[in-house]
Amino acid sequence: MNDGVLQPKLSIRDLNKAFGSNHVLRDLNLELAPGESVVVIGGSGTGKSVLIKCLVGLMEPDSGTIALDGEPITGLSPSEREAKMARFGLLFQNGALFDSLSVLDNVAFGMVSAQGRSAAEAKPVALEKLAMVGLDESVGAMYPAEISGGMRKRVALARTIATEPDILLFDEPTTGLDPVMGDVIDQLIVKCVKELGATALTITHDMESAKRIGDRIAMLYDGRIIWAGAAETVDASGHDHVDQFVHGRVDGPIAFATRRH
């Protein structure tokens, strides 16, 4: 607590990131309260993935600060940064499972490599996490190439939560999945976030998914958060850009970017 006000779990202030003349993030501000699930929506190429990459240290922002529990995590040395990163878990858009490892080794990877647990110690926890996402022990021996897209996403989710991070980040969790499997993944995400008591940030352009996952929704446009509000208010936000995006209209103030960052 800070002066009677709850300190944000994750705080992003005046974040800027440009690639040459392409200014992707412009003084972006966003705060996540402890245990809150925030969904950032926005069109393709608006910098959602850049935001997540800045959060986990895969990209260095040009300016601005990112603070975890009030402590800045930008501008740290690689070893300090690595220690902070252990508190983050990221579910990649395409899973990013390691092809050369079995499903079980994928899920146990963070526990063995980052937390220094032995393989024998990590195995029962990995099996437990697989069970949490609805996969049984037999899947553990398979390789990522041998399982379906939906199962790969579940395995990736199990890997993300295996180290029990404080902050969970989800990059387009339902992309490439059929609506039923998308719903399943959304429900698993909500369940995992609640069970871990984690703070979650999801980026997506799937509005149904955003409404299912998020306590709060924020819209990223032109490098800034242009609107934020409770998930249930997004359909009637009264904001032209949000209305156009939520209802998928071609006509409106949004000019969609065509280049990938």
């Binding site: 990459k53 990221l90 490599s113 980052a114």
Partner: peptide
């Protein structure tokens, strides 16, 4: 396929 990024996010 972002597996190298995944290594980084898993503190490896």
């Amino acid at each position: 396929t972002e597996q190298i990024d995944a290594l980084t996010t898993l503190s490896t």
